[in-house]
Each structure stands twice: as structure tokens, then as C-alpha cells.
């Protein structure tokens, strides 16, 4: 039982990272019908911005968790802003000129942008792994015991931060003017334009928002899981987040969250039962299974192609 709980905790933590990235895929698909393959690499940029900011600010281990959170907050915001700007630049330079081009052209451009970011990252940051310094208190007291499962406070912070970000996103999409415009463009871009919505602004905003979430994901991942930071780290995680978005139903925001959680949980259970080699295999079998039963994904709507 405690083992089960332990794996649930790890799965939820992984899943919240996947969900943050999957949201960007799904929102961009919603407004543009484009799979933005460069999105995973924006996640990588977020991790690097976090790393360099932490180094510039000479962050050190804080005695209390509250102190650590206050120290980390500016780094998180910086990573989000930097990535939002990157998202806007990518949209403006790579995708907007192709707005009227066939969809395949945009898709290939997305792959090009992804390769560009990966190689620019290797050139700029070097191929050597980097590591985020420990900021949250380590050692005794850094973990909680819950029914036999050990939960580190780092994990808890990560999940709560991701949940908060998703709540903010939900608010923006459901309760603000720009959010309503996003939903309108997603529903029917041409009709929205006829109603006086500036679709270019909405699309740019969507890119910025998605990229900010991916940046937050990258920074949280680097700072709270101690994982190595590499220029190619976005490939595997981005792919899994993309699968999460498709499983949940691409274009659907709650679907992306659900898909992310499912991916995280499947991964932690497969790994926890001693089959780490099969993590990806199980994830893709899950994808195929869902697509066979519900081609539009778990929470996706089947939208017939408008001619």
C-alpha cells in the first residue's frame, strides 16, 4: 500500500510537468491547428534561463522552505517571461509568415525551429550537463511521511506550483476578454475575425502563454527534481507531453491536464515495478489504445474538417 502511494506521489509530480508542457501544445493546436514541435525546446530554454538566473543571483541553500520559495519566485518569473518572449518571437518570425501556407509547410517549419533551438542551445550553452544549485532545505525535515510513503517537500512544492499555474490559466481562458477571444478563434478563426477579433493578436498571445507555461515547467523541473539540464532535454519530455496532449484530446485544455497526469502515473508505476526499460513502450501503447477507442482523445471533440 505504501509502495502504491509512493508511486502515485512520484507519478503526480512527473505528470504535473507533462501537463504544463502539454497545455502549450494543445492551446496552439486549438487556435492554429498546428503541432508546435519547438515547444519541448522552449521547456529546455526555461530550464537554462532558470539555471543562469540562479547562477547570476548566486542562489544558495535556504534554511527554511518559505525562504527558499521567496528566493525561487523571481527566477521562476524570469524563466516564464523569457520563454513568453521566445514564444512570441518564434510565432512572429517562423509561423506568422506561413499563416496562409499549407498546413504541412508550417509543420515542417516547426520541426526546423525545434532543430534550430536544440543546436543553438548546444552552441550557446555547451553540451555538458548543468545542474541547478540546491535552494530548498535538504537533509532531515525535507520530507513528509504519509501512510508509509516519503514525500519530499520539493515534490509538494512542484505539484502545488503547477496546479496554481493551471488555475491561473483556467481563469485567463474562461474569465477574461482575451480568453474568450482565444476560445472564439479556436472555435472558428474566420468567423471570429469577422466579428472583429484580431486573430493575429490572439494567436500571438496563445503562443506567449503556452511558452510561459513550458518555461515554468522547465525551471521547476530543473530546480526541484535536481535533474541534469541539457540542450537536448526537451526532446524526450516534449514528445511525452505531446503524447499526453493527444491522449487527453488535442485542443482540449482539461484533456491536456488529464493526459499529463496519466502519462506521469503510467511512467512511475512502470518504473517502480522494475521495468524502467519499458516506460516509453507502455506510454505509446497507452496512446495507441486511447486512439483506437476514442480517436479524438479522452476529452477531445471530434470536429469534422470544414471544407
Amino acid at each position: 500500500m505504501s509502495d502504491f502511494l509512493q508511486q502515485v506521489v512520484i507519478g503526480v509530480q512527473l505528470g504535473s510537468i507533462y501537463a504544463l508542457i502539454a497545455l502549450g501544445y494543445t492551446m496552439v493546436y486549438g487556435v492554429l491547428r498546428l503541432i508546435n514541435f519547438a515547444h519541448g525546446d522552449v521547456f529546455m530554454v526555461g530550464a537554462f534561463v532558470g539555471f543562469y538566473a540562479a547562477r547570476a543571483l548566486k542562489l544558495e541553500e535556504q534554511p527554511t522552505l518559505a525562504g527558499a520559495l521567496i528566493t525561487l519566485l523571481p527566477v521562476l518569473l524570469l524563466a516564464m517571461v523569457a520563454c513568453a518572449v521566445l514564444g512570441l518571437v518564434i510565432e512572429r518570425l517562423a509561423y506568422r509568415p506561413l499563416r496562409r501556407a499549407p498546413r504541412l509547410t508550417a509543420l515542417i517549419t516547426a520541426i526546423g525551429v525545434s532543430l534550430f533551438l536544440e543546436n543553438a542551445g548546444q552552441l550557446l550553452f555547451g553540451a555538458d550537463p548543468k545542474f541547478f544549485p540546491s535552494v530548498t532545505p535538504q537533509g532531515a525535515g525535507a520530507t513528509l511521511n504519509l501512510g508509509g510513503a516519503t514525500i519530499s517537500k520539493d515534490q509538494l512544492v512542484l505539484v502545488v506550483a503547477a496546479a496554481l499555474l493551471m488555475a491561473v490559466l483556467w481563469y485567463i481562458v474562461q474569465r477574461t476578454r482575451i480568453g474568450r477571444a482565444m476560445r472564439a478563434v479556436s472555435h472558428d478563426a474566420d468567423a471570429a475575425a469577422l466579428m472583429g477579433i484580431n486573430t493575429d493578436t490572439v494567436i500571438a498571445f496563445t503562443f506567449g502563454l503556452g511558452a510561459a507555461l513550458a518555461g515554468a515547467g522547465g525551471m521547476l523541473f530543473a530546480a526541484l527534481t535536481y535533474a541534469k539540464i541539457l540542450p537536448l532535454m526537451g526532446i524526450a519530455i516534449g514528445l511525452k507531453a505531446f503524447v499526453a496532449a493527444v491522449v487527453g484530446g488535442i485542443g482540449s485544455i482539461p484533456g491536456a491536464m488529464l493526459g499529463g497526469l496519466l502519462m506521469g502515473l503510467s511512467e512511475s508505476f512502470v518504473r517502480g515495478s522494475g521495468f524502467s526499460r519499458w516506460t516509453e513502450a507502455v506510454a505509446f501503447v497507452l496512446l495507441i489504445g486511447v486512439l483506437l477507442l476514442r480517436p479524438a482523445g479522452l476529452l477531445g471533440r471530434f470536429a469534422p474538417e470544414k471544407v
Binding site: 509512493q6 508511486q7 512520484i10 509530480q13 524526450a236 518504473r271 522494475g274 524502467s276
Partner: peptide
């Protein structure tokens, strides 16, 4: 116990 290069969470093991 075992892990895989590229994993970020080793707590389960």
C-alpha cells in the same frame, strides 16, 4: 535495483 540514463527520479528505487 536499476534505473535508466536520462531518468530524473530515482526515489522509487
Amino acid at each position: 535495483v536499476s534505473y535508466k540514463e536520462g531518468d530524473s527520479d530515482f526515489r522509487s528505487q
